[in-house]
């Protein structure tokens, strides 16, 4: 069991939450905008504390309100790729990629840079990157941080068709070759059908 999630949190007047279990592969969190899909990712990554519930990934408990477990974000080893890439503007691409790097990480740097096709960007500043380039760098940065699973927030939004294909190929590579569990948020049914081995509706 890769993801075992059951969380709720009240945000203003709305109750946001999700409950699902998923095996290896890519799980799609699907729903129209505004239902709180990003909040669920934040709760799994440890950036938003659920009022109640549990988050288990790959058998390890990251959060459990009943047991009083709440790992800080830096201990969860979530590879979180935000919708806006959130690259550090004061660091070049290379330093961004290596920010979360530590000894004994499983992924090889050159391989990762290679399959993402970002080798020519290493000395650039984030503000000079296109949307698709920034997103690939953000995926690389998350992978190289020693992530045990990936959280992708609308990874294909606001990109043209060619860029979408590039990112999609990268995601499929991560799913099939690197075999990392992925939880991906989208509101596009076509993406959900094509990529998801399991679809959770919110």
């Amino acid at each position: 069991m890769s993801f075992d999630v059951d969380v709720t949190r009240r945000l203003g007047d709305v109750q946001v939450g999700a409950a699902f279990e998923a095996d290896d592969g890519l799980t799609v969190l699907f729903g129209s905008s505004g239902v709180g899909k990003t909040s669920v990712l934040n709760m799994i990554a440890g950036l938003l504390k659920p009022d109640w519930g549990h988050v288990r990934v790959g058998g390890e408990t990251l959060f459990d309100s009943a047991a009083g477990i709440d790992l800080p974000p830096e201990a969860r080893r979530a590879g979180y790729v935000f919708q806006e890439a959130r690259l550090f503007p004061h660091k070049r691409v290379r330093a961004n990629l290596l920010y979360g790097r530590h000894e004994g990480a499983a992924l090889d740097i050159d391989d990762t840079i290679g399959f993402l096709g970002i080798g020519h960007l290493l000395d650039r500043w984030p503000r000079t990157l296109s949307g698709g380039e920034a997103r690939r760098v953000a995926i690389g940065r998350a992978l190289l941080s020693g992530a045990r699973f990936l959280l992708l927030d609308e990874p294909l939004s606001s990109l043209d068709r060619a860029r979408r294909e590039e990112i999609m190929r990268a995601i499929l590579h991560i799913r099939d070759a690197l075999r990392l569990p992925i939880l991906m948020v989208t509101h596009d049914p076509e993406e959900a059908e094509r990529l998801g081995s399991r679809i959770v509706r919110m």
Binding site: L47, E74, R86
Partner: peptide, 15 residues
Amino acid sequence: VDVRLESAARTLGAR
């Protein structure tokens, strides 16, 4: 300073 950059750093393993 964008606090979203700080949360990104946290998810990358930074205390």
